[in-house]
């Protein structure tokens, strides 16, 4: 039987286009394996940096009517601990695992990339776009094409044998320009988008912002149209494969992303809004969608909305 859901992402074979997004169920080998078994085509680990970080106090993850606000603050166990978890995952599962890294400075990125490469992940995602540590780190690197280009070049130079994807945010003047900076400096893929905003929720009784960090990135169904537009713009600018991420909850949402130009599709907040079954549900709905229309491969739909 043909697997209609099979995709090739920068040379990595995925049995489903669905990729668990970074920061969701991604701290341990066991949680990643649980998601892999439920039907994700690949799983992305939580972003890690050189050192352990506790992140912001809580509330750090706040549901509202249309998704989540989050300001976890790059809490992570540090790259060495993450190497151990990724190695443990690879012993448990054949599903490709994507490592995710961040740096406090431009120079830290290649350092963390070289260390995480020891775990031999299928891909390294370079998170240049966390919106929740602006006070500490300044503006996300992803708003500046020169910085994104430099980070891409440095990581590429240190890690030549593992594909790298640069994770972008909406917060920039021109996504096309940023995407070109990635392509020109040796990226193999682009993940777009990170959470959006930041946004804020204020409690009317207490009269102060609810998130301990006061503001946090929006994710979930509220941002799907923004993410689809972002993928569209990036696909129009560069030919790199895109992991289209942001607000995806259904098979139709996946199809939208692919029509905009995505090769694979990230799923994060839907784990909360739809439950962990979201992976198997989308897979079977997507299969039916394609079968009914006689579509044998998602690559036939890729970018088809660009007319």
């Amino acid at each position: 039987m043909i697997n209609r859901l099979h995709v090739d992402l920068a040379g990595i074979e995925l049995a489903s286009p669905l990729v668990l997004a970074s920061g969701v169920m991604g701290l341990s080998a066991s949680s990643l394996e649980r998601v892999a078994e439920l039907g994700a085509g690949a799983v992305t680990a939580k972003s890690c940096g050189l050192e352990e970080r506790k992140g912001h106090p809580c509330p750090a993850i706040l549901p509202f009517g249309f998704g989540l606000l989050n300001a976890v603050g790059l809490a992570n166990p540090g790259v060495d601990e993450m190497v151990a978890e990724l190695r443990a995952f690879r012993l448990l599962s054949d599903v490709p695992v994507i490592a995710s890294i961040f740096g406090k400075t431009v120079e830290e990125f290649p350092e963390v990339a070289a260390r995480i490469a020891e775990a031999r992940p299928a891909m390294i995602e370079v998170n240049v776009s966390c919106p929740n540590v602006a006070g500490e780190f300044g503006q996300p690197f992803s708003s500046d094409p020169a910085l994104v280009g430099e980070i891409t070049r440095l990581v590429r130079a240190r890690v030549s044998d593992i594909p790298i994807s640069i994770k972008l945010s909406l917060q920039c003047l021109s996504l096309a320009q940023i995407a070109k900076a990635c392509a020109d400096n040796g990226a193999d893929a682009i993940t777009a988008i990170n959470s959006v905003g930041p946004g804020m929720i204020i409690d009317p009784n207490v009269r102060r912002p609810v998130l301990a960090n006061r503001m946090g990135g929006l994710s979930g169904p509220a941002i799907l149209p923004l993410a689809v537009r972002a993928v569209w713009e990036i696909a129009a600018a560069v030919s790199l494969p895109i992991i289209g991420t942001g607000g995806v909850e259904t098979a139709e949402d996946v199809v939208q992303m692919v029509l905009a130009g995505a090769t694979a599709v990230g799923v994060g907040t839907a784990v909360y809004t739809r439950g962990l079954e979201v992976f198997s549900t989308i897979n079977s709905d997507l299969h039916v969608f394609m079968q009914e229309r006689g579509i044998t491969s998602l690559s036939d739909l890729k970018g088809a909305a660009h007319v």
Partner: peptide, 19 residues
């Protein structure tokens, strides 16, 4: 625990990934 809605992965048990 950080989220209580099953998303952050903070409370997952090693071995099974139960939240």
């Amino acid at each position: 625990m950080k989220c209580a809605v099953g998303i952050c992965g903070q409370c997952c048990l090693d071995g099974t990934g139960l939240r």
